[in-house]
Design a binder for these strands. Structure first.
Length: 277
DNA sequence: GTTGGCTCATATAACTCGTT
DNA sequence: AACGAGTTATATGAGCCAAC
């Protein structure tokens, strides 16, 4: 079977009117019971698209040209520059950029939207013309190393404050007695959960399953050293550690201990706080 | 609960390749 | 020659999750 361009166009327009929308390729073939070859004989390659265009429609065919990384990241960079902040997927969508945010996450690109900032930096990071954009992107990314979590954790501050306000009723003879009294104090005056850890890390007290408290009574120099090591071990299991030292007699030893703490744990941005009673 | 931001499943049209 | 399943790069909309 052979049909002229004109006849096919007429059929297309008829069906278009019947459906009140652009017919799909298969709908068109089924409607008139013609095979794809008939179209190809009339129009050659991309036959249906050509027919649609000949009838004044835009083709249904998807544009399958792969969009290069250069184009993608240039769009992303320009958008970032225009916004002055990290774009979200909706900003991209509004621009009608291609591929869409979800197309981006599929092969051949395989870039999730959330990974775009990092990928942009990898692609254009060394290009000076994108310097301003890189700056915006880096500012918009969540801080991974520069932020000190302890400055942000108000709960940790509160726990420290609470313990600071605790005044032992009297001088005790043993570390254990201080521990019992502090535990009672916390249980009676706060809503914190308090527990004693007997597992591998052996913390004296744990507040809200999160804040480890190590308690010492008037430590000797070796005991300070041991405390230093215990704290390191606690950081294996906890992100927050409080060292509470009771009955400090030697200011020298204490000051040296504090200095060591600052120099080692402080530099590592670990959340350690030392208190005395 | 609502909203914003993101991701996932599925649909799409032409093409390729294998089977009837 | 006809058919169907698979491939390709994309769009669409539903669904998920965390933050208010």
């Amino acid at each position: 079977m052979t049909m002229s361009d004109e006849l096919l166009q007429e059929k297309y327009l008829n069906l278009r009117e019947k459906l009140a929308r652009k017919p799909k390729f298969k709908e068109f073939l089924d409607e008139y019971e013609i095979s794809k070859r008939v179209l190809e004989r009339a129009f050659g390659r991309d036959a249906y698209s050509k027919l649609q265009e000949a009838c004044g429609d835009t083709a249904n065919k998807l544009d399958l040209k792969r969009i290069t990384k250069d184009v993608i990241f240039t769009q992303y960079g320009e958008l970032t520059r225009e916004l002055g902040e990290l774009p979200v997927a909706a900003d991209w969508s509004r621009k009608r950029y291609k591929p869409s945010d979800s197309g981006l996450s599929k092969p051949p690109h395989n870039i999730l939207w959330s990974e775009m900032p990092q990928n942009f930096i990898e692609h254009f990071g060394s290009d000076p013309s994108w310097k301003d954009v890189i700056k915006i992107i880096k500012a918009g990314l969540p801080d991974t190393d520069s932020t000190k979590p302890d400055a942000k954790n108000k709960e940790f501050d509160k726990v420290i404050n609470t313990i600071q306000n605790w005044v032992p009723k009297r001088k005790r003879n043993s570390e254990e007695s201080y521990k019992i009294e502090l535990r009672e104090y916390l249980e009676n005056n706060t809503k914190y959960s308090v527990s004693e850890e007997t597992g591998e890390s052996n913390v004296d007290l744990v507040v809200n399953d999160k804040y480890a408290i190590e308690l010492k009574k008037n430590p000797s120099l070796p005991e300070y050293d041991r405390l230093f090591g215990q704290i390191a071990r606690h950081f294996n299991n906890y992100n927050y550690v409080i060292a509470l030292i009771c009955d400090v007699t030697s200011d020298d030893r204490y000051r040296q201990f504090i200095r060591n703490i600052d120099e080692i744990y402080g530099k590592l941005n670990l959340n350690i706080y030392v208190l005395t009673k």
